[in-house]
Each structure stands twice: as structure tokens, then as C-alpha cells.
């Protein structure tokens, strides 16, 4: 087949990384299930699983990077990767949508109904007499005890500016890459990573403040639940994004990518912008409103 050699779609022959990843996932969550049920070995099994997953990612990405550098991928393969990343980000959007949905439902329906609004008059009268709906709230039973809510205009505002700036710096880095200016690329990409780390640092301080001084915890009723789950999952994604950006920085420093072929850079940049947009939603609906 002479045609196959010239620009055929690349189909790899066999791979050992996915099965390692499956064992990794399995140990992680099997251990996790034991852990939350307070079985001693669970923690270690879970950590073993995470180690498997990390080695899978390392190996899998190394294979793909080597193939990419060897010129194995044509434009069509590149398009597949792009679609894969786009739809992955879409799935992430829907994951966050579930938690935003919970926040909106709790604020617009659950809390007012417990407070007797709408069809909730009898619920309020028989079950939660004396509860007046308001937000933020930890419910009629004051689950978690008296707490302070997180103000929007201090650290969260600063974090908004930081994350927005990081969106700008990553774009400048992208332009530098496309213009072939590697030093500028490295500087602006490093700036993006640093902004991300600063964000995480500030968020960690915010969490510590909440837990130690404001009595605001994951157990603080529906407000604490939505606050920490939304910001927590977002923080996890910022962490992943920062790690991914760091890997890309290392690859840039090693001379990977040229002005036309740098999908990995773009994929991580998309991911970073996605994390940015989620934060804007969080800032608006969790902190400001």
C-alpha cells in the first residue's frame, strides 16, 4: 500500500498506558471508598492509585510528545486532538453546571420554600416555624453554627484580577510563540504560572481564614456546601491548569513547538481560559450576589 505511507491517518499499534491508568483509577477510588469508610489501608491504596495515574500520564504523554516531534501526526490527527480537548472542556463545563445548578436551586427554590414562600407555607409551619429565608444561610437548623459569609470585595476581587491578568499573559505568550520569540514566550508563560500560583496561595489563605476565624466550613449548611464545593473544584482545576502550564513551559524551554505546530500549548491555554470563565461565574454568583 503505497498510499499508506504518505500522510495516512496515524493509528498506533498497541498501548500499555491505558491499562495502567485503569488500575490507577481503580486503586484510587477503591482505596478512597475504604478511606471514607475508615478502613486503615484505604489511604495507602488510594495513594498507590494516584501514583499509578501519574506514571500513566507521564508515560502516555511522553509517547505522544515523541510521536509528535517525530512528525507522525498529520493535520487530520491534529484536528482529532483539538476536538478531543474541546469536548473534554465541554464535559467539564457541564460538571460545574451541576454545582451551579445546585446553588441556583437552593437560593431560588429550596431556601424560600423552607421559609414558607410559594407552596412552602405548610412545610414552614409544621417543620421549620420561625425560619425566615435569607442568603447566605446554613438552614433552619443552623447546621455548623453561626458563621460569617465571605465578602466579595477583598481577596476574591483581587483573585479575579489576577486570574483575568493570567488570561492576558497566556495570550501574549501565545502571540510570542507565533512570532517565534522564544524568550518572550518563556517570560510570559512563566508569568501566567506565577499568577496562577498566586491565585492559589490567596485562596488557601481565604480558606484558612474561613475555617479559623469565620466558622465557615464545608459543614456550614447549604452556604458552606455550595461555597466550598464550587470554589474547591475550581481551585483543583486551577491547580491542574498550573501544572499543565508548567509542563508546557518546560517543553517550550526545551525547544518544542514552532509557530505552526503547538497544539499542546493551545489546549492548555483553552483550559486556562475555561478555568478563568468559571471563576467569573463563581465571583458573580458565589461572592457578589
Amino acid at each position: 500500500m503505497a498510499q499508506a505511507a504518505s500522510g495516512a491517518y496515524y493509528v498506533p499499534h498497541g498501548t500499555r498506558w491505558p491499562i495502567l491508568g485503569s488500575f490507577g483509577l481503580f486503586f484510587t477510588v477503591f482505596g478512597g471508598a475504604l478511606w471514607v469508610n475508615e478502613v486503615g489501608a484505604g489511604k495507602y491504596l488510594s495513594l498507590l492509585g494516584v501514583a499509578c495515574l501519574l506514571s500513566m500520564m507521564f508515560g502516555w504523554f511522553r509517547t505522544v510528545i515523541a510521536e509528535s516531534l517525530a512528525g507522525t501526526y498529520n493535520k487530520q490527527v491534529d484536528t482529532s486532538f483539538r476536538m478531543g480537548m474541546m469536548w473534554f472542556i465541554f464535559s467539564e463545563v457541564m460538571f460545574f453546571a451541576a454545582f451551579f445548578g445546585a446553588l441556583f436551586y437552593a437560593r431560588n427554590f429550596a431556601v424560600p420554600w423552607i421559609g414558607g414562600e410559594g407552596d412552602g407555607a405548610l412545610t414552614n409551619f409544621f417543620l421549620w416555624k420561625g425560619f425566615t429565608p435569607a442568603w447566605p444561610t446554613n438552614g433552619p437548623a443552623q447546621v455548623g453554627g453561626a458563621f460569617e459569609s465571605m465578602p466579595a470585595w477583598g481577596v476574591p476581587l483581587l483573585n479575579t484580577l489576577i486570574l483575568l491578568s493570567s488570561g492576558v499573559t497566556v495570550t501574549i505568550a501565545h502571540h510570542a510563540l507565533r512570532a517565534g520569540k522564544r524568550t518572550q514566550l518563556l517570560i510570559w508563560l512563566a508569568a501566567t504560572v506565577l499568577l496562577g500560583l498566586t491565585f492559589l496561595n490567596l485562596q488557601a489563605h481565604e480558606y484558612i481564614e474561613a475555617y479559623t476565624h469565620m466558622n465557615l466550613t464545608l459543614g456550614t449548611g447549604i452556604y458552606g456546601s455550595t461555597f466550598f464545593m464550587l470554589t474547591g473544584f475550581h481551585g483543583l482545576h486551577v491547580t491542574l491548569g498550573a501544572i499543565m502550564l508548567s509542563v508546557i513551559w518546560l517543553r517550550c524551554a526545551r525547544g518544542h513547538f514552532d509557530r505552526d505546530h503547538h497544539f499542546a500549548f493551545e489546549a492548555v491555554a483553552w483550559y486556562w481560559h475555561f478555568v478563568d470563565v468559571v471563576w467569573l461565574g463563581l465571583f458573580l454568583f458565589v461572592y457578589v450576589m
Binding site: 429550596a110 423552607i114 447546621v143 458552606g224 456546601s225
Partner: peptide, 22 residues
């Protein structure tokens, strides 16, 4: 169940019906 959130617990301002919607 395991970490003390109140998404589906009316006492904490949540709602079991919310789970059904999601």
C-alpha cells in the same frame, strides 16, 4: 454522607428534591 455538606438536607437549607432535579 461523608463530609458533612447539606446539599440534600433541608435542616441545612438544602433539599432532597434538588437531587431529583439534578
Amino acid at each position: 454522607k461523608y463530609f458533612g455538606t447539606s446539599f440534600f438536607n433541608a435542616a441545612g437549607g438544602g433539599d432532597p428534591v434538588m437531587f431529583q432535579h439534578i
